[in-house]
Design a protein around this nucleic acid. Structure first.
Lengths: 337, 337
DNA sequence: ATGAAAGCGCTAACAC
DNA sequence: GTGTTAGCGCTTTCAT
């Protein structure tokens, strides 16, 4: 009672002919094909992916490993990946994983290995050489996003450079009392994003012969808000500019500053990183990472290996180009002292 | 060269014994089991889900259909669902679908039918009777979230009631010039959430013998921001309270109000719906929908049908209980006129 | 151009 | 308790 057998019988052909007609591979006469296709759709027949996969070894399914779902950059990235995959006829299996967890080990040792996915997109996860080896041994293309990983194609922005650029931008406006709102360094997100952005800030400040002060905070809007309230309370010691580690933190800082009666950008310059969808509303100067495009590009790289199997040239780490977006939050800088 | 055959040979047993030892089903002596398990893990063996599914008809995979990824409520919901599924040993296949699209038809006619998922969680999608029938005919449990759907278990909040309650809350504070910031009614999200929240507002206003005025906006923070700027500009006509259709809109309104020098809540009360993670920062009075818990509950319902196969009692629509969270944004209401 | 038959890797009767 | 056997539904040589 195999389903394709039913279609075949109804169309008066053999299973193999039905299969050829429906999959498009192999020779079938036009008239036969049309008949089979019509019968199949009339019956509402859809081939079982399991059976097809078992035979072909292709699942038409891609696993996506992601650390956050409720943060703007990651949600947007996921959207880009999802739409690109659907467009290519692939399904997306989602794994939310915090780095450094037992869960993560499980994922790589078990979930990803049971021949359910053709490829993997690993976001914000610094794969170990062992993990890379295990996955490539299975012949599964992997693309990493968020940092460089030896041996596989990766997509990432230059976090140090981005942070340095933003700091230089603020310096060029004449600021000297600049503070960096860094992510929690002990949290140790993979690839040390927080640490790298801190480093970019420090590099720029050192080059300008200025003292680089920073404070750590949760990488969220409430985090930036709370920290700004603490840091901005004392008018005599407050910085004239804040270089925030990400837009969420920057936005929290702006809200807090306004609550304290501090005008932004007149009395306080704020910059972020991400081009969050609220950035425009707050006139935030930031760096556009184009997560949507990163997602689509990642899928393209996957498809290069999967469909056209040309892994060679592309395998090197790819520094994704970003774009600085200057808005009013830094436009009118007060030149202090 | 079947993989489990390799394990079996290496362990000196037959394929079926190996299968029993690894799956845990059926009788195997403890010593044999241990040996097989050890050999398998030494070889890094993981059973092919395809083959297992083909045989058992169970995919241990659940499809989740969701309209947005980058909105707080939906992202949080997805997180809840994901973690509950992983905990149950299930994978999650993600489909982002805008209601009313060609894509959506494809999804139900094709993607969801190819025996790749055991069950479906449909979020914010008003399934048609035809779609429900097709899916239930396949014996796949479905749980809907966001509105009632005939014939399947659904989880939703009482949108009319929620909106009425919030309006009554504002009325009780003594406000008379209250405006509703509604979602775009032409956008027609499934289940008419926007229209229902508007109705709850109108019901409460009518009961209080007050004129119910509302304006439509995109259901986003920038949307609420732009609308508030337009509505609040004229001090003589501005409302003393805004009942926003969701927290995103409410937050945008608060930011705009503050930019205009309007104090919140002293000069303007604002309420929302969702308990967005920025709600606390803005002191926003809102309704907590607990998306995380909704997600976990949805998975539980799925598992009831899937594992314990007891679909009966639960199938009726379930009104998910919400909680009103009063914060400072409505605490000190100015009694107008 | 089409059909017959083998088999993808695993599980579940059924025998022993 | 363990091995043997027969498929799950499809694709794909290989004949015809």
């Amino acid at each position: 009672v195999s389903a394709i057998g039913d279609v075949a019988r109804a169309a008066g052909v053999s299973k193999s002919t039905a299969s050829r007609a429906l999959s498009g591979r192999g020779y079938v006469s036009a008239s036969t094909r049309d008949r089979v296709v019509e019968v199949a759709s009339a019956m509402g027949f859809v081939a079982s992916t399991n059976a097809a996969s078992l035979k072909s070894g292709q699942t038409r399914n891609v696993g996506v490993v992601i650390p956050f779902l409720n943060r703007w950059f990651f949600a947007e990235l996921l959207e880009g990946i999802e739409s690109a995959l659907i467009a290519a006829g692939y399904d997306l299996t989602l794994y939310q994983v915090s780095p450094d967890s037992e869960q993560r080990r499980m994922l790589f040792e078990y979930f990803l290995v049971r021949k359910r996915v053709d490829a993997i997109v690993a976001i914000g996860i610094a794969l170990t050489p062992h993990e890379v080896e295990r996955l490539t041994a299975l012949g599964k293309p992997i693309v990493g996003i968020g940092g460089e990983i030896a041996g596989i194609a990766t997509l990432s922005i230059d976090d140090v450079g981005v942070s340095r650029t933003m700091t230089e931008h603020v310096l060029a406006l004449g600021h000297t009392r600049i503070m960096h709102f860094a992510g929690d360094l002990t949290e140790r997100m993979d690839f040390g994003v927080h640490a790298q952005r801190l480093r970019g800030f420090r590099d720029a400040m050192r080059a300008a012969d200025l003292a680089a002060s920073h404070r750590e905070t949760a990488f969220t809007t409430p985090g930036g808000y709370a920290l700004a309230h603490a840091v901005l309370a004392d008018a005599t010691t407050r910085p004239s500019a804040i270089v925030a580690g990400c837009d969420e933190v920057a936005i929290g800082a702006i809200v807090a500053a306004r609550e304290l009666g501090i005008r932004v950008p007149e009395d306080l310059s704020v910059t972020g990183v991400d081009d969050h969808d609220l950035a425009e509303m707050f006139g935030l100067t930031t760096v556009r990472q184009s997560p949507h495009r990163q997602g689509k590009l990642a899928v393209e790289l996957i498809m290069d290996e999967l469909v056209r199997s040309e892994p060679a040239g592309r395998r090197s780490p790819l520094a994704f180009p970003v774009e600085v977006v200057v808005r009013s939050s830094t436009a009118a800088a007060s030149v202090s002292v």
